[in-house]
């Protein structure tokens, strides 16, 4: 069935056909867990353009909307590579799981529009973290990067994050929940932030870009794999990173090009007209010790502290930029 979904997706896109894969070479199959968001556009671009096939790799993506099975699946050997948010990765590492960064994936933008936004109801007069004390804020999950960036904003704008109640609401339901008054604010990621403003524009408004206001351009997500696998098959992951980075280049050259939106539509099924209003993330190749340390430091401020290995030791050579 995965084949069918993807083929249906292919039919929707008008991309130039892929470069011919190496003939007569058996491809190494690599199963990658992804989430259907704009962050993974470079991976899909590299697949579509044949950059992985050229490296002798066959990438088999497994899209899980919630992402709940990604990192557990990596530990269990279901996946060789997992796209995940930095906080979830680091929490796994804190618990002794040997995740290693093989490539960067997504980060915030240095200036608006950014990929995370905090939305409130018009007329509710909630403008800051202080206003949110005793109120309810929605995050798609607690203890992930969305929540962390949201709490950092609450603190930065004078609120005590412990006095703000976090409610877990899936992104697709967040705008309705906010408009209906079940929550007082929501930490949205794209394309849900722009989507909410289009569909509920007369009732909702954006009050903040939390990453820009707390740590502009800070990291959001990476590709990780298991340390054991890297030690045994490091060369496979070098090929993976080479292919992926060509996809990153392709995407970065076309940030407002219809071809990129067609690509994203094909795997995420988000209509092109909505994507036109969507902010895309920054697509880095590398993972730096400083950006990992920033997340570790921030996590410690919001109840997720602990002992972590030195960030540099968590980054595989492919992600050294």
């Amino acid at each position: 069935m995965t084949q069918i979904t993807r083929r249906a997706g292919l039919a929707l896109t008008a991309l130039p056909l892929a470069a011919p894969p190496l003939v007569g070479q058996t491809l190494t199959r690599l199963r990658v867990s992804v989430i259907p968001v704009t962050d993974v556009a470079p991976l899909h671009a590299a697949m579509r353009l044949g950059h992985f096939a050229a490296e002798g790799l066959e990438i088999d993506t497994s899209t899980t909307a919630g992402g709940a099975t990604g990192l557990p699946g990596l530990v269990a050997g279901q996946f060789r590579v997992v796209f995940s948010n930095t906080v979830s990765i680091l929490l796994g590492i804190r618990e002794g799981l040997d995740f290693r960064f093989v490539a960067g994936a997504a980060a915030g933008n240095p200036a608006p529009p950014d990929i995370f936004a905090i939305l409130t109801r018009k007329g509710s007069n909630i403008r800051s973290g202080r206003d949110l004390e005793g109120k309810r804020i929605a995050s798609n999950t607690r203890n992930n990067i969305v929540w962390l960036r949201g709490m950092a904003w609450v603190e930065k704008t004078g609120g005590d994050w412990r006095k703000v109640t976090t409610v877990e609401v899936p992104f697709p339901q967040m705008a309705d929940a906010l408009a209906a008054g079940q929550i007082d604010a929501g930490i949205f990621s794209e394309p849900f932030a722009s989507g909410a403003l289009v569909s509920h524009g007369e009732r909702l408004e954006r009050v903040a870009w939390p990453i820009i206001e707390t740590a502009p351009g800070a990291t959001v997500a990476q590709y990780v794999t298991m340390k054991d696998d890297l030690e045994r098959n490091g060369e496979v992951f070098e090929r993976f990173a080479r292919g992926l980075f060509k996809g990153v280049d392709w995407v970065n050259e076309r940030r407002h090009d219809p071809a990129l939106l067609d690509l994203i539509t094909a795997f995420s099924r988000v209509p092109v007209e909505r994507l036109r209003q969507t902010a895309l993330p920054t697509y880095p190749k590398a993972v730096t010790p400083a950006e990992v340390q920033e997340v570790i430091t921030t996590m410690a401020r919001f109840g997720m502290g602990g002992r972590f290995p030195a960030p540099a030791s968590l980054i595989f050579r492919t992600a050294n930029g």
């Binding site: 979904t5 993506t61 497994s62 909307a65 919630g66 099975t69 992104f171």
Partner: peptide, 19 residues
């Protein structure tokens, strides 16, 4: 919940795509 198969996955994909 898991994988990329069948009506269930389609349902979630469409939900996340805002369709």
């Amino acid at each position: 919940i898991a994988g990329e198969q069948g009506v269930g996955h389609y349902l979630v994909l469409m939900q996340f795509a805002g369709r």
